[in-house]
Amino acid sequence: MSEFSTKGRMHFMVFTESFDVTVMCRFLARVVGHFDRNHLIVDRHSAHHSKTVRAWLADHQDEIELHFLPSYSPDLNPDKLVNADLKRRLPHTHRARNRTGLASETRRLFHLRQRQPHIITSYFKAPHVRYTLDE
């Protein structure tokens, strides 16, 4: 999972378990404080709008806000460009032979991206995610 800004900052969390409300709340707790106010664009995954996540967000409403994409619109999700970047790069550098190795390689690539803000900002220049630049 990742959070990134139009100014090229990126924060991420690699997890190997199934994505659920526990993982979502753990990610939210990690990203709070990275920016003055966090605005996360999320899809309609059940964990994103679960009762547990809504309660967590209510306790942190001055720090973070979720913005839900319309149903069935993955093309509008800027995070999909991060995932595509990861999938494009890993075959060239992939040395992992198991889940732990893949998580390690993912962290390595994302740490590299954190030092390349020009690539992070390029995610927002795709025509279908330009709406995110209206800050």
Rank of each mutant, 00 (worst) to 15 (best):
M1W: 02
S2C: 15
E3N: 07
T6L: 08
T6Q: 10
G8S: 06
G8H: 11
M13W: 03
M13R: 13
T16R: 08
T16H: 03
T16P: 00
S18C: 06
S18G: 06
F19L: 00
V21W: 01
T22L: 02
V23Y: 01
M24D: 00
C25W: 01
C25I: 14
R26M: 05
L28P: 05
A29D: 13
R30E: 09
R30D: 05
R30W: 03
V32T: 13
D36S: 14
D36V: 08
R37T: 07
N38K: 05
N38W: 01
S46V: 02
S46R: 00
S50G: 07
K51V: 12
K51A: 12
T52I: 15
V53K: 01
R54Q: 08
A55Q: 14
W56A: 01
W56F: 12
D59K: 15
D62R: 11
E63T: 11
I64K: 00
I64G: 00
E65N: 06
F68C: 02
L69W: 03
L69D: 04
S73T: 13
S73A: 15
D75T: 12
L76N: 11
N77Y: 10
P78K: 03
P78V: 04
A84F: 11
D85F: 15
L86P: 07
L90S: 10
L90E: 08
H92A: 10
H92E: 12
T93Q: 11
R95V: 14
A96N: 09
A96M: 05
T100V: 10
G101D: 09
A103M: 06
E105R: 12
T106E: 03
H111Q: 10
R115S: 14
Q116H: 09
Q116P: 00
P117E: 02
I119R: 10
I120P: 05
Y123S: 08
Y123G: 03
P127H: 11
H128Q: 11
H128W: 06
R130Y: 04
T132F: 06
L133M: 15
E135L: 15
